[in-house]
Amino acid sequence: MKENQLGNGPCYLRTTSMTAEQDEDLLKAYLNMAPSQTLKWLESGKMPSEQDVEIQGTEPYIVGGHTASGYWVNTNRETTIRRLYAAGDVAGGCPQKYVTGALAEGEIAALDIIRTLESERSDSTVEETESLLDEQTAQILHTYENIRNEDHAAFSIEELEEAMQKVMDEYAGGIACNYQFNERQLKLADEKIDQLIRLSEQIAASDMHELLFAYELKERLVVCKSVIAHLRSRKETRWHSFNENLDYPDTDDTYFKYLNSKRIDGELQMILRDIVEEASYEHTDQ
């Protein structure tokens, strides 16, 4: 990225030093994961050993399998909501877990679920809880029906999705600003995402598949709000090159902590937690 900014682009991965045998291996490796790349090499008639591969940075993702983003869990992968567990890409605190980590976390959560349910299986729901659950279900159903029956939608799902991606790209450290951001931009990003959330309350879906797209937009907007709040609250730059906070360009020891968040009465509250040193962690203040 820096090379491109300095005018030295495009950037390549040197593959032309490879042998024909390595070509074969690479084609096979990609067939096992991203077959279209193999097809593209074959189609172009030029193997990687004959032509360097141009590379570029992707847009940012939120992925607990690679970074530490996600649910705050105890060692058994139970979240701060009782009997709700998280494993894999949605579980936080365990970066670089990849495929085996996802399998391992699924197993750890499953074993604790068995322990919990086998010891407290017969706990029956009280009537009051039942009626609250019925109310929640009715409310959710109502939202589905509203989207299905909306006939005054001002914007399509796709238009709002594009607007959201543009806001995040330009004001929350996307490719357009070389993954850099400052507080003024993030404040604007937050306001604009709020605006889009209001507009998304009037989207329409003509069938069940579109209802899925409507929800995918809504959930992305919810996650955007949290990403922006987190970027704003870590007033330092800890992970250089892919997370440059231009107002706080240095690492600051005050932020050698976990930055957590929790929605209370519709507002995101930020929580700084000390680094866990113990071999086992249990939620104590929920």
Partner: peptide
Amino acid sequence: GIQAGAEMTTFEMRSLHCAV
């Protein structure tokens, strides 16, 4: 989870990749 009030962590650590 966010909407149900679960505590979430480290959303500011974004994932970027170098790709073809």
